[in-house]
Structures are given as structure tokens and as C-alpha cells.
Amino acid sequence: MKKTIAHIYALGDQAITIEWSASISEEANNQVMHSFHFLQLHPIEGVTDIIPAYCSLTLIYNSTIIRKQAMGGSPFEWLKKKLASLAVAPRETIQNTVPLIIPVCYDLSLAPDLVEATQLTGCSIEELIALHTSEIYTVYMLGFLPGFAYMASVNKKIQMPRKANPRKLVAAGSIGIAGEQTGIYPLEAPGGWQLIGQTPLKIFDISKEEPCLFKPGNKVKFEAISLEQFHQFNAA
């Protein structure tokens, strides 16, 4: 396996980042996920958040608590040393988990950019749906909104740029494409992704103990449903 040398840097005086690569790669993301899961299982006292991204992992920390562990020394230097061993440890490939099946209705009434998407990609609506539902996507990271999962990679034939003028309001549950990424808006929010469908599932639900449907590292597959099924889903 190719050895990746990680770059560890300060993100201010209360956060530290380990970066494995400057570009998106499966291998770098495997290292991100391994380190993320490792740190969740073996938490460092004083580290309050562990945020995975495509090819980096950021730790937010309470410098007062870390300073105690560092016996009064520099909290940053102490954490950097601790993470250096983590960053170079050999990593095996992550086993594929069973994908979450997400029902999506691609009816034009719920897919405001689907017609434009056919013009941008040269694919027919049927081809576009077939290509979007055939892939198993990986949740590389969550961000932008609570529960918003960045998934990749979308088939090259249906990759398209963001909208030049973002919408002021995108409906919750909308499925979008931006470049090689696809994602679902968990909440009604402004947004610039090309909207090609909508899921009846609640992606983010504050009444649940675990409000977010997706976690970093999840596998996801979309399944086309009819408008009738979409409405039945909401009625149930």
C-alpha cells in the first residue's frame, strides 16, 4: 500500500487538523475514517469534536483541559505529538457496509432542475435517473446544514456545475448534484445544487435522539419511487 505522509497543522489555538492529501481520494478518506473511528473509540480528554472531511480530520479542543494533560506544556504541541503516531499507522481498507436505501421521487413537480440537467448533461431523464440510482455512494462528510451529507462520486455522465444563482429556498428532502457530489437538503434552506428529485424521508428530525439519518462513512443507494408512492409515504 502506498504510504501517505500526513500534514498536521494548527487551525487556530483551539483546533488541529490532520490532512492526508490535497485532493479527494478513496485512500485518503479511508485514513480519515479510520482515525475518526479510532478517536471515537479512544477519546482524548479535552477533545470536544472530531470532524471528518474528504481528506482531513479536524479536532476541536478545550485548551485548558489539554494543558493539564500536557503537564502545563503547550496544548497544541502535546496534541500534535499524540496525533502524529495516529497519522502514520498502517491502515487496511474499510469493509463495505450495507448501503442505506433512500427512496427518491424524480417527478418533475419535485425536481425543479431535472429538465435543465438533461440539457447540461445530454442525458435523457430516464438515463439520468438510471445513472443516479445505479451507484453506491459514500458519505464523505457532513456539513453546511445539520445532517447534510456530502456523497460521492456521481457518474461522470451526469456531473454538472452548481447553479449560477443559488435558490433562496430549497425544500427539505431535495436531492441535488454539484460536480461529482450528490446530497440531500435536510432542512428548508438556500442552496445552489441542481435539484433532480426529492425523498419523502426525514433526513433531519430534532424530535429523535439521533436527529441525523446519515453518519460519516455510510454507504447510500437511491431507489426511484413514483409520485403516488411519495405521497403515500407522507400520508403513512
Binding site: 487551525l11 487556530g12 483551539q14 483546533a15 487538523t17 490532512e19 490535497a22 485532493s23 479527494i24 470532524i51 472531511a53 474528504y54 481528506c55 482531513s56 480530520l57 479536524t58 476541536i60 462528510m141 456539513g143 456530502y150
Partner: peptide
Amino acid sequence: LISSGVTNGT
């Protein structure tokens, strides 16, 4: 840049 972590004060 590829999206990565940011924090309070960035």
C-alpha cells in the same frame, strides 16, 4: 480547496 474543518475565529 476541498472542504475541510473550520472553527470559531477562523
